[in-house]
Design a binder for these strands. Sequence first.
DNA 1: GCATTAACTGGCCGGCCGGTCAATTAGTTG
DNA 2: CAACTAATTGACCGGCCGGCCAGTTAATGC
Lengths: 190, 190
Amino acid sequence: MTRARILESAFELFVDKGFAAVSVREIAERSEVTKSLIHHHFGGKEGLWEEVKQLAFAQYYQGQKEELDQAEQPGPELIMRAVINYFEFLRNNPGVVRLFAWTHLEGDTSCSEMDGELVRLGAERVRQAQQAGLLRDDVNPTHVVTIFVSLCTQWFEARDHHCNWPGMGSDQEFLDDFLKVFMEGLLPRP
Amino acid sequence: MTRARILESAFELFVDKGFAAVSVREIAERSEVTKSLIHHHFGGKEGLWEEVKQLAFAQYYQGQKEELDQAEQPGPELIMRAVINYFEFLRNNPGVVRLFAWTHLEGDTSCSEMDGELVRLGAERVRQAQQAGLLRDDVNPTHVVTIFVSLCTQWFEARDHHCNWPGMGSDQEFLDDFLKVFMEGLLPRP
DNA sequence: GCATTAACTGGCCGGCCGGTCAATTAGTTG
DNA sequence: CAACTAATTGACCGGCCGGCCAGTTAATGC
């Protein structure tokens, strides 16, 4: 469908250059339609941008919600699996990562509630594990989730940047080291 | 001086909206000069952008290098102080944080060597502490540095975004919790 | 098969974009 | 003061921007 082709081209370009640096003409050319048609379907550049974002957000939200909704006994293993899952999602969806980054810089907070809900779910799991004595309880559960989320996010956002740092390992090696430190730092203190 | 006033206005606008979304006219208006003068002094929009970035990078590099060059016995306390120092720098220079973020998204790697050098210095400190038996030695030192750099960076980059997450604490509270988990996770394993 | 709606086109608009240039003013040096 | 340089201006350029609209083609329903 034409609509989908436009959305795809727009996604690629927005991911690559950000909203301001992409022209409607460019999107039209890549999706092999006329500029007018984009206007017809999306109302304008802004409308298209919103729809692209919404699609990406929905994809993100759905994938993460699924994982978090699986009712299991909270504990270190569950937390770790959630982190790995999140890490994998970002690895497989670099476009979404960049779209989020552009969006944040532009001050768009439309995905705040969505993200807030996911964080709330994650923090609840951490809290349960704390109450069960499986994780140290002297740290804010929301902070724990934020640590995991921020680290995964930044790893992929700045990947091109720090992949050249001396001594840097692969995705997997970084994740392993990062989990080693945090999972053990989260264990109950004697 | 006029040149400095232009640079200041440009910095503010670029920080706020990114390179593509700022017009030379806008910068001229804010700094109360004519568009032509900007051309005269900086050669064009691109030239001004480069100079703004270079100034910010220099400021960043200088501040961090100073801290890292202080010859002290490496150990957990030194690492912790470096983290706190980095965190404070970002807190006090939100503009620089955003400029870095825009720059990364645009694929500019001009600050990669600079950052690489800082990371190398930090990793060296970690390695020394590992060899002295003060930190666990089964993690890549570069990864350790990357972990705390990424976390501090992301905290301030996405601050507006996650400050509304339920249960989120203040800058200080987050830093405290992060250090609690991170520093204990780095201790030598029995 | 005819009416209605949706998909799609090309051309045009006013406006802003970055950049250029000749001319003017201010500052400096001898 | 004169001569030269640097700072600064305003007017102007071609080009691209997003948006609009009248019109055409294609699909849909009765």
